[in-house]
Design a protein around this nucleic acid. Structure first.
Lengths: 179, 179
DNA sequence: ATAACGCGGACTATATTAGTCCGCGTTATG
DNA sequence: CATAACGCGGACTAATATAGTCCGCGTTAT
């Protein structure tokens, strides 16, 4: 699979919806169904975002998640690291020290500092991370907000509100969503 | 495992040794043993470099690989793509089109153009690739060449030459390399 | 003829990713 | 106070990718 995983994709999509619904906690289950992704998988992603201080959780019925900070203060890099745990782009195996002309232990000049190949990869990783760090949730949301017609955001609000209501005011145990 | 794989690492290390031994073909088996890596795995990497026009192969005993171009004309990005096959950093699943408020098929405004999240990832990937493209084998070799003492390059030449000779001039079936 | 070469395909083992399932303590509602 | 949905966490499974092995083929210098 790709280095930037589906978990990151799901997390970012959810954070954008949280950004568009400030003040109202959204549950991970609702967010999953709303976007047609796996609720149980999404449930494993949110605790990571919470530990990273990106979202804040409230428990119990009517609970859910809120953005813990302003969307403009949350970078894509933070989200990636929160979900994937800072995995490196490249895993140097120190081949340079295994050279056959080094009997037993390699000399210190050969293993001192960062391997030149590793250094190239670290620079590439830094370029990637800098790029991700330069974008916030606001930057991403802007693109989408400009494309959507005004009625859409009402439809979304309505869909999510209906979900929240069905948990408190009863009578919607059997709703219109058939298989 | 990491996105930039062990295959790339092995390939780059080998290419550096090829760059330091112009005109003399080196076999993938010798290169593997010289660096303490798996000969059979390395044997799967070189054909990819050959198809990409990075090395040229000669068959038969005394065969092996040569750099097909000047080391300064071979970028790290080319090597990565040759070995890994241009795998993307991120695999967009078009979550945006699955929104529950879209009954059946999503409207065209929602799926037109590149997903905003995907666009961020593509920019990050480009930053990474640009960084890799800016470095050639010469750039990497420079770092290492400066560190090694003069005697080292002689030792290497000797080790490799002994290997090549043991294929042509016989008498070295049992050499000093004990377990 | 031999031995080592590159080439390619089939195969295996291990790690990661994606996803499921279940049980716990919490909390608003009726 | 029972219920139902919530977040949390751990154990589990399935699919895929990576790393590595093995074997047989045609080629080529000795």
């Amino acid at each position: 699979m790709a280095h930037l995983t589906a978990g990151v994709e799901y997390g970012l999509h959810c954070l954008l919806w949280l950004a568009s619904s400030p003040g109202t906690p959204l549950s991970s289950r609702d967010l999953a169904e709303f976007q047609g992704i796996s609720p149980s998988f999404l449930a494993k992603i949110f605790p990571k975002l919470e530990k990273a201080g990106i979202v804040s959780a409230s428990e119990g019925i009517k609970g859910g998640y809120l953005l813990a900070r302003q969307p403009g203060d949350i970078t894509v890099l933070e989200v990636v690291d929160a979900i994937e745990g800072r995995k490196p782009l490249f895993d140097c195996q120190e081949i340079r020290g295994r050279c056959a002309v080094f009997r037993e232990r390699p000399p210190s000049w050969a293993t001192k500092g960062v391997c030149a190949i590793h250094a190239v990869m670290l620079r590439a990783e830094k370029a990637m991370r800098d790029s991700l760090a330069s974008q916030t949730l606001v930057d991403i949301a802007g693109d989408f907000g400009r494309k959507a017609p005004p009625e859409f955001s009402d439809d979304v609000r309505k869909w999510l509100a209906d979900r929240t209501k069905s948990r408190t005011r009863n009578g919607a145990i059997e709703d219109g969503a058939l298989s």
